[in-house]
């Protein structure tokens, strides 16, 4: 039994991995379906005498619908799941067991971080695969290159979200406080990105890249955001380790 296996068991036995996979798969299956039939559904329930014309949905609409849902509910689940692993000081007795057996919190943070990122990316991959398949069936195949680039950008964005949770868990003790503060920062980052039109420079912008890339945006537009996000991931993890080592129990 190692700390890596401990974190893997935490995801599997607590069914948190199932929750991650299920959420992304659900939106992967329902997103393109919604895009395909939204016009008809709204038309069917529309006011008599009023005719609403919807453009014919494109493959990009199917993927964008998936990304829109997954980047909110999916991200919420990722943050909650990773906070439950990374806020390891929330219960003192459990923290004493781990902290008195390792030379520094790095040994605890890194496996918890890596396994939770892997779980989140597995969810994104499954959801994207579902969305890709269903979009191809219902609306036509989205461009493969754009899909792969978008999934890669989205994965890096999720890695940032988990790193942010690790950092917040080193600032506050409880699971809910760590998750809540991380979500608040992510929300503010998203608002900042939209308001200042610097979304492609921010980690939250990468999360929506999948939808925009399938709509025709150039993958290179997100490279500045990729660089910023990678730097922020390193800073957040370094901060989590540094603050965690200084914290008293």
């Amino acid at each position: 039994m190692t700390l890596w296996r401990l974190e893997l068991l935490r995801l599997v036995r607590t069914r948190r991995l199932v929750a991650l996979l299920a959420v992304y798969a659900f939106f992967g299956l329902t997103g393109p379906l919604t895009a395909r039939y939204l016009g008809r559904i709204l038309g069917a329930i529309g006011t008599e005498g009023v005719q609403v014309q919807f453009p014919e949905p494109t493959p990009a609409d199917g993927i964008t619908q998936f990304v829109g849902n997954a980047s909110q509910i999916g991200l919420l689940v990722v943050v909650l799941v990773s906070a439950s692993a990374l806020a390891f000081d929330a219960r003192r007795e459990m923290a004493v067991f781990l902290r008195t057996r390792v030379a520094g919190v790095r040994s605890i943070v890194l496996p918890a971080y890596a396994i939770n990122v892997a779980g989140a990316v597995a969810g994104l991959l499954l959801g994207s695969a579902c969305a890709w398949y269903e979009t191809a069936i219902l609306l036509g195949a989205p461009p493969a290159g754009a899909m792969l680039a978008g999934i890669a950008y989205g994965s890096v964005s999720l890695a940032f979200a988990v790193a942010l949770v690790a950092f917040m868990a080193a600032l506050v003790r409880s699971v809910l406080a760590a998750a809540g503060s991380a979500l608040a920062v992510l929300l503010l980052t998203g608002i900042l990105g939209s308001a200042a039109r610097v979304g492609t420079w921010l980690p939250t912008g990468l999360l929506g890249a999948l939808g925009e890339l399938t709509a025709g945006r150039a993958p290179g537009d997100y490279l500045p955001g990729l660089a910023v996000t990678l730097i922020l991931i390193v800073l957040a993890l370094a901060g989590a380790v540094r603050l965690g080592d200084r914290r008293e129990l």
Partner: peptide, 11 residues
Amino acid sequence: TLPDTPQFDPW
């Protein structure tokens, strides 16, 4: 070290 009320991941 053993704390006063040891707790472990229940799973």
